[in-house]
Simulated scan of single mutants.
Amino acid sequence: MANIKVLIIDDDKKLVGMIKNYLEKDGYEIIAAFDGAEGIEKTESHRPDLVILDLMLPKLDGLEVCKLIRKESSMPILMLSAKGEEADIVVGLELGADDYLSKPFSLRELSARVKAILRRVSKLKEDEKSKKKILKYKILQIDFQKHEVTINGEKTELTATEFALLEMLATNPGRVFTRDQLLDGVRGRELTPFDRSIDIHISHLRQKIEPDPKEPTYIKTVWGVGYKFEDEE
């Protein structure tokens, strides 16, 4: 685990110090940045395996940092929200954050989230190595080895969470997954009350792969239950 790098971007130096000390005990290499601009710089220079990103930052706010990271990389992002407001969480997830944690939080919970995200990313990489098939559904093509999705031959960029969701659904066509099953499968935790993060990720995924996101061709909503991947040609 010594080679796993975690970048913390937060202007609260005391909190960063506490997180750093706690996660270093888990064996991670910790890099710290105290404003958004420094965070972008260290993301590019250190290429961390995971970013812990606060929303409220000087110079460049967390949402803008998330957007800039997503333009260049699919590295997982764990978002921290001091406000605890659903609107901020929703926007962050829409911009490509993989998970969120509302302040105040316990360091134990933070550590558990970090481990769950890294396990998922590691599993995705292992699965990609073992899979040789390419799935094709109408104009949608999913290449598991290359971790690529194309629409009519044009590549579309997905975050790690979006790809994991698509993989889970597309490799089980016709099967209905509850929100709990999807969230537990791709992020390793159960839904909390009023947790809408899966709906946000599904919405974002539809925007990227569906010809008409308002009338989905592939990812269908099963009202009152969850979602399924349409298996009809």
Score class of each variant (00 low, 15 high):
71 K>D: 07
186 V>Q: 00
165 L>C: 07
129 K>Y: 09
81 S>L: 12
97 A>P: 00
213 P>R: 00
13 K>N: 13
42 K>Y: 01
138 K>I: 08
190 E>F: 13
53 L>C: 02
206 R>N: 01
118 L>P: 01
130 S>H: 08
146 K>F: 12
162 E>M: 08
140 L>W: 11
172 N>M: 12
105 F>G: 09
231 D>F: 14
87 A>L: 08
84 G>R: 03
26 D>N: 13
41 E>K: 14
174 G>N: 09
78 L>Q: 02
210 E>I: 10
197 S>G: 06
64 E>F: 02
115 K>R: 15
136 K>S: 15
144 F>N: 01
15 L>I: 05
222 V>D: 12
104 P>G: 05
50 L>E: 01
37 A>F: 04
15 L>K: 06
89 I>H: 04
226 G>D: 08
102 S>P: 00
113 R>D: 03
140 L>M: 11
58 P>Y: 03
197 S>V: 03
233 E>L: 15
41 E>N: 14
179 R>T: 13
162 E>L: 12
130 S>V: 10
182 L>S: 06
78 L>W: 00
34 F>H: 15
44 E>D: 15
180 D>G: 03
216 P>S: 04
166 L>P: 00
120 R>C: 10
191 L>D: 11
41 E>V: 04
186 V>F: 06
136 K>A: 14
229 F>D: 01
46 H>V: 13
227 Y>L: 14
46 H>S: 11
154 E>H: 10
121 V>D: 14
82 A>N: 06
227 Y>M: 05
23 L>Y: 00
39 G>I: 08
